[in-house]
Design a protein around this nucleic acid. Sequence first.
DNA 1: GTCAGTATGTATGCTGTCGCACATACGATG
DNA 2: CATCGTATGTGCGACAGCATACATACTGAC
Lengths: 237, 237
Amino acid sequence: MSIAKYIPATNSVLRSLSRKDSQRLFARHEQVNLTYGDVLCEPGKQLRYVYFLNSGIISLLAPVDGHASVEVGLVGSEGMAGMALFLGVGVSPVRMLVQGSGTAMRIKAAAFRHEIERNPVLQRALNRYLYGFMAQVAQTAGCNRFHRIGTRLARWLLMTHDRIRSNEFRLTHEFLAHMLGVRRAGITLAANILQKKKLIRYSRGKITILNRQGLERASCGCYRTVNDICEHISVGI
Amino acid sequence: MSIAKYIPATNSVLRSLSRKDSQRLFARHEQVNLTYGDVLCEPGKQLRYVYFLNSGIISLLAPVDGHASVEVGLVGSEGMAGMALFLGVGVSPVRMLVQGSGTAMRIKAAAFRHEIERNPVLQRALNRYLYGFMAQVAQTAGCNRFHRIGTRLARWLLMTHDRIRSNEFRLTHEFLAHMLGVRRAGITLAANILQKKKLIRYSRGKITILNRQGLERASCGCYRTVNDICEHISVGI
DNA sequence: GTCAGTATGTATGCTGTCGCACATACGATG
DNA sequence: CATCGTATGTGCGACAGCATACATACTGAC
C-alpha cells in the first residue's frame, strides 16, 4: 500500500454527499493504493483507518474455528471498509484482505469518529450502505448452507465483476477456494464447467468474463436477491 | 400477540439508558405479549414497529431461493427486532418469527425514527448492539459452511438457553430443522446423541437442558466466538 | 379406552464434497 | 531452451447429509 496521487472520488457513499458535507471529510483524507494481497486489518485488531474505495475490492473474512476463514462480504467502490468504527467499536471482527488492486480514500479512526458525529448526511448514507451490507452477509449465510459450489462460484464471480468493472481479473483457483471455503479441486471442477459453457475463460490466475448473462443464469438466486435489496434502497454498485 | 399489563423493562438496550434518556421512549411504547409462532414481519414488507424484548426470543430468517428460509440471527432481551428502521430503511429483509413466548416493548416506526434522531445515547447503545449482531450473522455464515449438524445444534440450543433463561423450552425437531436448514431426521439423530450423553432431554416438543457445560463442549467454537465479541463490547445477554 | 394427530425413530440408496495424492501444463528466469 | 515454481486437471475412497419412506410412541379429544 502506498500514498497515491490525487484521484477523483468515485466512491458511491462520498458522491452522495453534497460539496459542503464532504468538504471536511476530504480535508482529512489520504489517497492510498491498495495492492492485491494487502491485509488492512486482522480480526480482533484495532482499526486504524476506514477506507472509502474508489476502485478495487476488499474481501471480509471471518475466522472459523478449526478452519481457515471464509468470506462473509465484499466491499467495492459502493461502500466503506471498517464499518465497526462507524458503530463506535474500534476492533474489526473480520480480516480485511485486498482481493483486487485499486485506490481508496483513507481516513484516520479518530478523524472519522469526529466527523461522523457532526455529519448526519454521511451518517445516513452509511446507514443505508450498512443495511445493504447486512443483507449481503445474511444472504451469504443462507447461500453457504444451501447452494452447490458451481452456483456459488458464479455468484462470487458476478459480485467481483460488478466491483472490478473490467471483464478480466487476477484470481487463482486456490484463492477462490479460500473465499468460498472449499477445496481447490472443487473450484477447478466448477470453473471448468463454466469454461466449457463459454461463460468464462481462465488460465494461470487470470479470469475473463465471456458471457455475463449466462453467468447470471448459472448463479444461485442469492446474487439477484442482494442486488434487488440494494437497488431498492439505491445503494448502487 | 396482545397488549400486556405493565412489566418492568429488562431489555439490555433500554436499561443502558439513563432515566432522562429513556423517558420519552417509555412515553411512546406499548407493552405486548409475543406468542410462540407469531410472525412480526415478513421479508420485503414494511416494518410497522420495533420491538425491545423483555423476555422471549425472536428468530430472524432469511429466505433462500429454492429452499425454505434459514435462520441468520436470534434476538432476545439483549436487543431489538426491526433494526432496519434504525438504519433508516422501512423494509425488513428478514422474517421475524417468535420462537419463544415473552413480552416486548413495541414502538411505532415513526415514533422510533423521531426518537432515534434526538437521542444519541440510544443511538450509541443500538450501534453497539448492531456490532454484536453483525458478528453473530457473520459467524453463522461461516458456521453454516463448515460445521456439522451436531455441533450446530448444540450451539443453537446454547444461544436459545441464554435468551430464554430457563432450562426448559418448547421446540420440536421439526422446528429446529427449519432453523438450521436441515432435515428433520438429521435433527432427530443429532438430538439423540446429545440426549444419550445426558446433555439434554426431550419429549414431544419439550427440551430440557441437563448439562450446560457439556453442551458447550459439544458445540462448535462459534458460540464462544460470538460471545467473546459481545462481551468485549459489553453487550451482555 | 379408542382414535387421530403429531412427534420421534429408523432404513435405504444417492449425491456432493472431502481428504489425499499425483499428473500435467504453463511461464518466468536463468 | 532447460529448469523450477506455480497453476490446473484428475482419480479414489470416505462420509455427511439428502430424499424418501415407513414404523413407532406419545397425547389429547371424544
